[in-house]
Structure formats: C-alpha cells, structure tokens
Design a protein around this nucleic acid. Structure first.
Lengths: 121, 121
DNA sequence: CAGCAATATATCGGATACGAAGGTATGTCG
DNA sequence: CGACATACCTTCGTATCCGATATATTGCTG
C-alpha cells in the first residue's frame, strides 16, 4: 500500500467516510467537498471504485432501486478507513513542510541565496 | 494549470522553496522532508524538472563545477511559488475535510447510516 | 593501475491513473 | 414522441511516475 492516493481517489474515500453512498451521488459529494473544483468523470469514478474494491478499501454496501434506476451503494471498509487516515497524515506533513518554507520565503523577501552555505550532506 | 501536482512534483517544489538546489541534492532534500519515505528516482526527478521548467514553475539558476562534476542549479520561479502556494491550500482543505469526517466517524462508532435522509440534490 | 563506489547528469520502457467521450436503460416533462 | 435528467458502465488516449540503464569524473582500495 505504498502507492500514494491521487486527489480523486482521496476525495472518494473522504466522501465515503460520511457514510455509504452510490456512484452517481459520489460525483456530487466530491464536487461539494472540493468547492466545485473537482468534478469526477464516470471513467475516473468507476475506474477508481473498481480499484478500491479490488484493494479491499471499499466494499459494496448493497443495491437499491429508486424510480426504476439501480443504485449501487459503496461503503468504506476498516482498511479503507485506516488508509484514509494514514494518507491524511501524510498530506498533513507535506502541507506543513510547504507552509513553513513558503512563509520563511515571504519573511526573508528572497535574499541572494547563500549557495556557499554548504551542501545538504 | 488545473492539473493537480502529484506528490513527487509537490515535494520538489517544496524543496526548492528553501532556495536554489541542484538535481542530485533534491533527491536528498526530498527524502529528508518526507521523513525518508519518498526516495526520488532519477527518472522521476529529471522528468519532473523538465516538465516544471517547461511549465515555467522552475528556472535554471546556473551551473557550477564542483570536483569536475557539473551541478545544475534550479530555482523556484514566481509562478512556481504561486502554484505551490495554491496547491498547498488545496491540500489543506482536503486534509481538513478528511479529518473532520474521520473524527465524526470515530465519535459516532458508525451507526446505521440513515439512507432515507434524502439524496444530495 | 585496475576496479568499485559515489556524485551527477540523462534517457527509455512499462505500469497505472486519470480524463474525455460515448453507450445503455429508465422515468419525467413538454 | 423527443428531450432531458438520473444512473450505470466501457473504451481510448495522455500524463506521470518508477525502475533500469547509460555516461562521465573523482576518490578509495587492492
């Protein structure tokens, strides 16, 4: 499980953390929690779901027929919850590293970059 | 620029936020700021650098010869700094969304998920 | 001095995920 | 009936990433 999740996959797991949801509903939920910036395409969604089910991170929760249309619900597995948790921690560390370096940059207003300060051993 | 950065590319920009650095040095720096979890391979590094230079996010800062070996320094461009900043914000929002949903899950110990609560319009 | 490790560059091929587009089916609205 | 929205799924092309490999120079070791 050392393959880092990409954004669409991460958001799918995040959406499912709220509770079981069907495929088409995930498209709307992911759009909502990303502020309408990420719009999942069916190809991305079902490809990702197949992979996640195959990896045991997501399970099929059941099916339902509403107005003659099939709804297949997916649910986060315990392993999926653990993976999402670990991925979140990883991202949090990256965000912190980038934030501190960016703020240091702003504070210093980018001086002449002392290249003679010794390499990073 | 709506293509989200993958982790290796994000970490390269983060490393360069500290100051100019040469390719091989980036491998060590990225390893360091990721807690030795991400080890950049040459193929990833130079492929990413070419793409970043091509996209105007990174610029060649100059070259230096140390012990007969060429060192090509790269530097974060203003556009690269803006992109890194925007990407960091995006990740921060994703981390926050995942964190709140995961903690809500833990608190509720996963009840019966009210599926009849109405679809997300 | 021959061989190997380390530094530092670069390239190639395979694997995988993602995105765009299209396809099928059902129910509702005009 | 035709158009549209919901809801499922598939195929194809592209981009990114990783592993392996190649090249060149210095320095250490046998």
């Amino acid at each position: 499980m050392d393959t880092p999740l990409r954004e669409p996959t991460f958001l799918i797991l995040t959406a499912l953390a709220t509770g079981p949801m069907h495929g088409y509903g995930l498209i709307g939920e992911v759009a909502a929690l990303s502020g309408n910036r990420v719009s999942l395409r069916p190809g991305t969604l079902y490809g990702a779901l197949d992979r996640l089910v195959d990896a045991g991170l997501v399970e099929v929760d059941g099916e339902e027929v509403v107005d003659g249309r099939l709804r297949r619900y997916y649910r986060l597995s315990p392993g999926g919850e653990a993976t999402l948790s670990a991925e979140t921690e990883r991202l949090r560390r990256n965000v912190e590293a980038a934030t501190s370096r960016l703020s240091a940059r702003t504070r210093a207003a980018r001086p002449i970059t002392p290249r003679t300060a010794g390499g990073l051993a």
